[in-house]
Nucleic acid binder design. Sequence first.
DNA 1: AACCGGAGTGGAACCGGTTCCACATTTGTA
DNA 2: TACAAATGTGGAACCGGTTCCACTCCGGTT
Lengths: 344, 344
Amino acid sequence: MKKPPTIRDVAAAAGVSVSVVSRVLNPESGPVAPAKRETVLRVIEELAYRPRAAARELSVGSTPTVGLVVADLANPFFAQLADRIVWEARSHGVQVMVMTTQEDPHLEADSLDTLLDRSVAGVIATPTGANIEKWARLQSMGVDVVFVDRTIPELGNVDVVSIANVDSARRATEYLLSLGHKRIGLISGPVTTSTGRARIEGYQSAHETYSVSMDPQLIRDVPFRGEGGGDAVGSLLALPERPTGLIVANTAQVQSSVRRLIQTGVQIPEDLSVIVFDDNPWTELTTPPLSVLRQPIDMLAVHSLELVLGRMQGKLPSTPRVIEVNADFVPRSSCSPLLLTPSR
Amino acid sequence: MKKPPTIRDVAAAAGVSVSVVSRVLNPESGPVAPAKRETVLRVIEELAYRPRAAARELSVGSTPTVGLVVADLANPFFAQLADRIVWEARSHGVQVMVMTTQEDPHLEADSLDTLLDRSVAGVIATPTGANIEKWARLQSMGVDVVFVDRTIPELGNVDVVSIANVDSARRATEYLLSLGHKRIGLISGPVTTSTGRARIEGYQSAHETYSVSMDPQLIRDVPFRGEGGGDAVGSLLALPERPTGLIVANTAQVQSSVRRLIQTGVQIPEDLSVIVFDDNPWTELTTPPLSVLRQPIDMLAVHSLELVLGRMQGKLPSTPRVIEVNADFVPRSSCSPLLLTPSR
DNA sequence: AACCGGAGTGGAACCGGTTCCACATTTGTA
DNA sequence: TACAAATGTGGAACCGGTTCCACTCCGGTT
């Protein structure tokens, strides 16, 4: 319980001034005679001295730490994203403060305040979509902001890393259309989010390409939280003209949607061809294994971290970067041609 | 990009001394005239002043932050645990620094150093089992340590929160024994970990109770990382005398084990009755839904946080606390009596 | 022989809070 | 009425680093 040594303790033990010790600690900040450097390093070792982060932060004004504001760690997509980002950051010698918003704008606002208090130099976030002025304020304080997976179009000057949402939704839809399906249900995220809108757009675009008319009843936008996916599945299946295909484009609702499908005993793919967004590990453990759009989580993590670090070091041009990575479509056994279904 | 206001700016604008502002910020530290308090609060509001965490930390010496050192966020069990702990901590006004070890003692050591540098007051961890002297050093520096899920028996004076591992494994085993199974495979964690040992112990104890002799070949301890579970499944099924029951007691290996079971086309439960540890959401989406031992993640989170906060406030007796919470056995359709299987 | 420039060093201010202490004012009590 | 106690206030030291600056040695130029 005795207090840890300070830089002055080290200086005294090594018979030099604190300036010298500090210069040994940060080699770029000035010259030190090789002999003294040696001595100082030895003393540091002996005393097991470690500089206190708070002191350095206070005097330097910021800290090589990035905040990670993620919606929900209980969602495997975000959890894996966080895991990769934390891992990647460590290899760059950067700390990560992980915060969760549970999709609640108030909690998001809290998180941003906290990160501001801790003087983080950069933030990687999956924004809820609200708190626009708060994000702007953060930027105006010199904090570099990178959005990942989603974005807020109203906010300029933000780097964004996401999957090609329009294209991904289009490909999934076109795949089902090419199998002959005409009525395809879509469960997407809220239209208030960029991903929700983009995926609906891709869905529509595919219908135009195939000259298939589109029934707006088949599009359901549901919140990220809660069991909305299951309910949407229920009501889609209850339609007089039941869909023969289903795309679950809301990653947070895949579980509840699939659970409902299983509960209601729908035969997949005989009664319903299914594609879900995001390749959670269990999607190939179901019967049948589900066709998925796999989001390249590693790419998202690497790019977002690269961007935020690049900004922090001022190595990037000031124009905002938008990086879109392609998602892989992984066909499995949950889709079949409509032809197989006898007219009902 | 202009610099944020400091406490001295606030003092100047309110026409008081910094001491007064500080006392308004921390009410317990001294009296302030109601009128001045009012003024100061207004000025704080106007200037959008926020105290910088680093300055406070430097002067106070520690910070109301707990470190969370978790093995692997990509594992849903740990991810959910982290989610709950972060959430719970926030409601207590406490920050959480999340770090991951990927089960690597070196990374764990790094994490502990970092947490020490940041002067955290407490740490909640799922230890790898190594770094014993490092943990001890952390404690000797006055950091409160709580282990969750696993422990290191060699380390005294640590609070531990875990599920009743022996009992849980015993119940799972007894359930299969009571269904008439005599040859039950067990895939557990490494015997170097407390959970691994305890679950094997429960498995053995159940065999004694039922006076069923035990074939050591059926016990496989595999690492947490990698695909060991799948391989263990493969080799268990390749035994001349194949097991008719299987318990996967290594939460990190459930996925790879189940994947292998599905790949090899084993009929569950006809050929093999299966119980897995931990109720990941997808365990009821497989065919058939899997019988599971559900770890009460909420309880683990709440208790561990309560313990570490209690210690930090010095409200707990100095004797270490060990809290065991019971896991629920949730029977689903992946187990059936041995009788149903005709002699092969 | 006088001068210049750079390597190496230590002193001290500074970052933005907290807290101790001395002092002034008000209130309560004998 | 006098004096003790409680209340309120500001000054200044302090936490542990970083960094600016002045200063001392050097060797190398003219």
